[in-house]
Design a protein around this nucleic acid. Structure first.
Length: 759
DNA sequence: ATAGGGTTAG
């Protein structure tokens, strides 16, 4: 703002003329001649005030972003001073042209201290600290400005220790240097050090009071902020705005309002702070009143209002404001896109995304997240690819989102490529990104790579540990999961309820019944964790697998919370394994009551009947499914070969390679029969004839996928087959696949989609 | 005429 004064001066410079009102201030001096007008007088004498006017004009063009015009003026100057060069260099830096600035700096005949200081601040603004430091060391003379420039450069980029060292080394310190150190602490979240520094000295200027006050606001230290505010010898508008924001952001709207009414002047910040406070607290009526009353509105005030409506799912009102908004910014569009996506209106989100004039990385992340959360994983990944093609910077949030999408659909190769991009972008060390990456590898079944990522994640939090523990448990590495749990405790990370789900299921998979019981009963005592239905489900599964059906049943009875469908599902699964039809029926009945749409349970119960030869009940189940309109989601298996997804359903003949696959399987079967293999057809639904049953067992989707893999994956490479159904569970998140190989497979997908919609 | 500090609203 400081550099843009849009008044008549600027308009004059637009017309390529030095400002006229300055002539009046300097009545004796002739205005400099401009290129194209009369050539300079033959006498080579150019007065110094003429040069000043030229310089002023150069600066003004630079402030308007007109580098070319400034350069033309500069080139046509009859005489230049050091300031003329400095003005050009400074102007180039203002317009982001470090290269041109550097060139002029190197070419200039004589440099003064200001030239060096300008260049120093240029390097720092461009974050080239090496060059900045080198320049600083080369400087023939340094003044307090040079030191202050370096100090704030370090501070703004998080180099607190360097900034401190600079401060100590400074031969002369002024008010700005002290404030620089104070700001170093505040900007880097080191509020205690800031407070100590502030208390060590008197007579701070207003700027510094405001600085510390802003620090308290950021840290939500309301009491400290208020004390400081009350002690301030002078208060300006910023001080009032800051203290109002303190209360508004900490949900004390009453006090905020009181100060708001007391504030001697109200500018657009004051009004908007109040407005946002109301929005944050869902007080949209009050927010709307403030909005209507405020004399001056800007982009931020409009956006706050729109965000308020978005948060309360009033997309109709949000849209009304958005359309009425005279000064839409990228964030206005982004807020709307996010809002539509969160409300499940992905079509509107998409429409806005495509017609917005400019997109930033937030826009891309918003639309990708929108697709991902609405189940359009494929489209989400496609957008990510397009984002890369678009060449814009990809932010951490887009990376995280697209990694979790890859994880959802187990797009392993894609996920690995993203990992590569992450490393290139230097983002792989972050905690969020690291956890998303870890989860991607775990969900894709690549637990070793997950472990590597875990090792490399610098800041591990509970989520990191939980993800790997659950990853181990899910893939049958119970012992490793438990070992990791021990290391987690050793590392001083407090286990939470999610950790315990991983631990208990690890015990279940490893058959460690007693250990599981011990953990289960000590959770509350050792870690203060309240048991939830998921823990009970793990325990019932654990006891059930071990054949202790009575204990499992008793545990259900003892539950302090209502058993959910998953809990009964674990009991049903256990009943099936141990052939307890009676208990299975009981569990299934509960599930039907809780989740009548859950087709997986019908199938599970049906299989239970079939395995005990109760064929009449099997057909009853079929009828029940038909009558209630529940349909079993088709089971698919798929794998990725050379960035293409190959998808199979049971007895699939649609894949282009199916002839080869079946021939291969026939060949295998011949070999197996020779070895004396007889297929078990016990668990297949009864009303298909024996031959058909054998066929279904022989050609279930996993088998087709594995056969295809053996034929197509180079030997020595792992084969990774994914499927959408698990026993007793219909996973909805893996049924939409990336890049189907052929039209017929697209048809399969659209059937699956249609069926999901029916439910 | 050219160089250095800060805080407040999404």
């Amino acid at each position: 703002m400081r550099y843009r004064r849009l008044d008549s001066t600027c308009l004059n410079s637009l017309l390529n003329k030095p400002p006229t009102h300055l002539k009046a201030e300097l009545p004796r001096n002739k205005p400099p001649k401009l290129p194209g007008s009369n050539p300079p007088v033959k006498s080579a004498k150019v007065s110094s005030s003429d040069i000043v006017q030229w310089n002023r004009s150069v600066t003004q063009h630079m402030r308007q972003g007109e580098c070319d015009t400034a350069l033309r003026l500069f080139n046509s100057m009859p005489a230049k001073s050091c300031v003329s060069w400095n003005a050009m260099i400074s102007g180039y830096l203002l317009n982001g042209r470090l290269d041109l600035a550097q060139k002029l700096f190197d070419e200039m005949p004589q440099r003064d201290l200001v030239s060096w200081n300008i260049m120093l601040s240029g390097y720092i603004k461009n974050k080239t600290f090496g060059s900045a430091r080198m320049l600083f060391d080369q400087m023939p003379v340094r003044d307090v400005v040079s030191w202050n420039t370096l100090l704030s450069g370090y501070a703004q980029n998080g180099y607190v220790d360097d900034a401190k060292r600079i401060f100590v080394m400074m031969p002369v310190k002024n008010e700005i240097s002290w404030n620089g150190l104070l700001a170093t602490y505040v900007q880097n979240g080191r509020i205690e050090e800031a407070r100590k520094l502030f208390e060590s000295k008197d007579n701070w200027p207003l700027v510094s009071w405001n600085c510390l006050l802003g620090g308290y606001l950021k840290k939500r230290m309301l009491a400290e902020a208020r004390t400081l505010f009350d002690k301030m010898p002078v208060k300006d508008q910023v001080s009032w705005n800051t203290i109002i924001s303190c209360y508004a952001q900490n949900d004390d709207l009453e006090e905020a309002r009181k100060l708001f009414d007391e504030s001697p002047i109200k500018d657009v910040f004051t009004w908007t702070s109040m407005l946002s406070g109301y929005v944050q607290n869902g007080m949209l009526y009050e927010a709307r009143r403030i909005f209507d009353e405020m004399p001056e509105k800007n982009e931020v005030s409009w956006n706050a209002m729109i965000a308020g409506y978005v948060q309360s799912n009033r997309m109709d009102l949000a849209r009304e404001f958005f359309e009425a908004m005279p000064c839409k910014s990228i964030s206005s569009w982004n807020t709307m896109i996010t809002g539509y996506a969160q409300n499940g209106d992905i079509m509107s989100a998409r429409r806005l995304f495509h017609c917005m004039p400019n997109r930033d990385c937030i826009s891309w992340a918003a639309i990708i997240a929108g697709y991902a959360h609405s189940g359009n994983s494929e489209e989400a990944l496609r957008m990510f690819v397009e984002m890369k093609r678009d060449g814009g910077r990809i932010n951490r949030s887009a990376f995280t989102c697209v990694l979790s999408t890859s994880a959802d659909i187990a797009a392993f190769e894609f996920g690995k490529q993203i990992h590569g991009r992450l490393v290139k972008a230097g983002y792989h060390t972050g905690c969020y990104v690291g956890n998303a990456l870890l989860s991607m590898y775990c969900k894709c079944g690549s637990i070793d790579e997950g472990y590597d990522v875990f090792q490399e994640t610098a800041e591990k939090d509970a989520v990191s540990w939980n993800t790997l523990i659950i990853g181990y448990a899910r893939h049958g590495f119970g012992k490793q999961a438990l070992r990791l749990f021990e290391s987690m405790k050793d590392a001083g990370i407090r286990p939470d309820d999610v950790t315990m789900v991983g631990v208990l299921s690890a015990c279940g998979h490893t058959g460690l019944i007693d250990k599981g019981m011990e953990y289960f009963y000590s959770m509350g005592r050792d870690f203060g964790i309240t048991t939830n239905p998921r823990h009970y489900t793990c325990m019932i599964d654990l006891l059930g697998r071990a054949g202790r059906l009575d204990d499992a049943q008793n545990l259900v009875k003892d539950m302090p919370c209502e058993p959910d469908a998953a809990t009964w599902g674990a009991l049903l699964g256990a009943s099936r394994i141990h052939g307890n039809t009676e208990l299975g029926e009981k569990a299934a009945e509960m599930i039907f009551r809780l989740e009548p749409w859950n087709a997986g349970m019908y199938v599970l119960l049906s299989n239970l009947y079939a395995s005990s030869g109760r064929w009449r009940d099997v057909s009853k189940m079929r009828l029940k499914m038909r009558d209630t309109g529940v349909r079993k989601m088709p089971g698919y298996s798929w794998l990725e070969v050379q960035n293409q997804i190959h998808l199979f359903s049971v007895g699939d003949t649609m894949h282009p390679d199916s002839k080869r696959i079946y021939a291969f399987l026939e060949e295998l079967e011949l070999l197996m029969n020779k070895e004396g293999y007889v297929s078990a057809t016990k668990l297949v639904l009864h009303d298909v004839d024996e031959e058909e049953k054998a066929h279904m067992l022989k050609y279930h989707s996993e088998k087709l996928a594995v056969a295809f893999a053996i034929l197509n994956v180079p030997s020595g490479r792992p084969i990774r087959v994914m499927k959408n159904l698990r026993t007793g569970k219909q996973s909805t998140d893996t049924c939409f696949l990336v890049l189907p190989v052929s039209r017929t497979h697209e048809k399969l997908l659209s059937e699956a989609t249609a069926q999901k919609r029916d439910e």
